[in-house]
Simulated scan of single mutants.
Amino acid sequence: MQIMITHGGLARTRVVSFSRMQLSLAIAALVLVLLLASGAVYHFIFLKAAREGWPIVSQLVKLVVHDEIAQRDRFMRENLDAMAVKVGEMQARMVKLEAMGDRVTGLAGVKPDDLKVMTAPAPAPAPGPAASGAFRATPGVGGPYVPLDHPTLDQLNLALQGLESQAEQRTDLLTFAESRLFETRLRALMVPNSRPIASDVIGSGFGFRTDPFTNRPALHTGLDFAADVGTTILAAAGGVVLSTDWHPQYGHLLEIDHGNGLVTRYAHTSAILVKAGDLVKRGQPVARVGTTGRSTGPHLHFEVVVDGVPQDPAKFLAAGPAPALPALAQRTLVPTPSGPLGTH
């Protein structure tokens, strides 16, 4: 780019040449100068006019600033209203979750006394600087969420904090109920209420009878299932193998510990398929029918013992999937016989 400069009093013309780079730099410098000038004018004139209340300029500045503030407030109000709707939906869901938690805890058998600590209000610091370390309990609050027409940010923060606290409490409550349900299911699996052998033929039941060897009245401490030698014997419940020893009257005797002082015995077996210390589950093959020990023929002598006292196995087998063990034990306790541990 070339610029020709002429003057009437001069005989020659001066020519000034600019490259593209020089022209770009000149334009950039001009723009920068204009920006600095406009900033200086705004800072020293408009802001000063707004502060000192100049007649015309201050009103223009106030209109611009007021419009910007109104737009920002409108944007924030729309966002706060949307957040309030979401908070209302979350609290409605929390109410449903609370009702579901109450039903689940009822099914789990959780007592109201167990929930007093969980549902009690959290301790809050007592007011005043001299009350460090002292706490006072705040009264409980609750109820459905009714959103305000124009909630503030502080109100939304308080609502969100309350939702977070309720969610943590509901989570703890459901976890507690889950543990109770698992405990109930585990106890059901540990109670011998399934038949140890696939046979409906009962030789002798629990109670007094005439002993086949002495022909005298004696207590039969178990339930006899008639079956052929070699018939598979199943664990009546899950537990740990207590012993697999030989007994002069029981013959090959298997004992399984089910916890809470409850033990099952499988006597007169021809073979034992597990060893002491093994963990067995309900329905697992553990032995085979035989006629060892004090026995008149092939059968399984099945016993249930609670705290060392023989019980009627028929009551356990007929009690269903999860009988109440303490109450059942109290109803079926009988005196320990003075004679030998078992007959046949």
Score class of each variant (00 low, 15 high):
Leu186Trp: 03
Asp200Glu: 11
Val334Thr: 08
Arg185Pro: 12
Ser243Asp: 04
Lys315Leu: 03
Gly128Thr: 11
Gly143Tyr: 10
Asp307Phe: 03
Trp54Thr: 06
Pro337Met: 11
Ser338Met: 05
Ala126His: 13
Leu262Gln: 00
Ala276Ile: 02
Ile5Gln: 07
His7Cys: 15
Arg14Pro: 12
Met21Cys: 15
Ser58Asp: 06
Trp246Lys: 03
Arg195Ile: 01
Ala126Tyr: 08
Asp81His: 14
Asp149Thr: 11
Leu279Val: 09
Asp67Lys: 12
Thr119Gln: 08
Asn157Thr: 03
Pro285Val: 07
Arg294Trp: 02
Asp278Thr: 09
Gln2Ala: 04
Tyr266Thr: 01
Pro298Cys: 09
Pro196Gly: 14
Arg185Ile: 06
Leu160Glu: 12
Leu173Val: 02
His344Tyr: 13
Asn193Arg: 07
Leu341Lys: 04
Val33Met: 14
Thr244Gln: 01
Ala122Tyr: 15
Ala322His: 02
Pro285Arg: 08
Phe176Trp: 04
Gly222Ile: 08
Arg216Ile: 14
Leu158Cys: 13
Val289Ala: 03
Pro335Ala: 14
Val64Ile: 12
Asn260Ala: 10
Arg185Val: 11
Gly162Phe: 04
Arg72Ala: 06
Ser38Asn: 05
Thr138Leu: 07
Val309Lys: 03
Leu115Glu: 04
Pro125Trp: 13
Leu273Phe: 00
Pro335Glu: 08
His299Arg: 04
Tyr42Trp: 06
Asn79Glu: 15
Ile69Gly: 13
Val104Tyr: 10
Pro151Thr: 09
Phe206Arg: 05
Ser165Gly: 07
Gly222Gln: 06
Asp149Arg: 03
Val33Pro: 11
Glu168Thr: 14
Gln169Asp: 03
Asp224Asn: 01
Ser295Cys: 01
Thr296Phe: 07
Leu333His: 13
Met21Asp: 15
Pro335Ser: 09
Gly283Ser: 08
Ala130Arg: 08
Gly293Cys: 13
Lys48Arg: 11
Ala227Thr: 06
His268Met: 04
Lys315Gly: 02
Leu63Lys: 05
Glu78Thr: 12
Leu80Ser: 07
Ala236His: 01
Ile27Met: 13
Tyr250Leu: 01
Leu163Gln: 07
Leu254Cys: 02
Thr105Ser: 08
Leu153Gly: 08
Phe302Ser: 03
Asp113Lys: 12
Pro125Ser: 10
Val334Arg: 06
Leu253Ser: 07
Gly53Pro: 01
Glu68Val: 14
Glu78Val: 00
Gly320Glu: 00
Phe135Ala: 10
Gly261Phe: 05
Gly8Thr: 15
Gln22Cys: 10
Gly140Tyr: 04
Met83Phe: 07
Gln249Asn: 00
Ile5His: 02
Gly143Ala: 05
Gly259Leu: 11
His43Leu: 10
His150Ser: 15
Thr119Asp: 10
Leu156Arg: 06
Leu242Ile: 03
Tyr145Leu: 01
Arg282Trp: 00
Gln2His: 12
Ser19Lys: 07
Leu219Gly: 01
Glu303Ala: 07
Phe206Trp: 09
Val33Gln: 11
Asp200Pro: 10
Pro337Ala: 06
Ile202Asp: 08
Leu300Arg: 04
Arg216Met: 02
Lys111Thr: 15
Leu273Asn: 05
Pro147Ala: 15
Arg195Met: 12
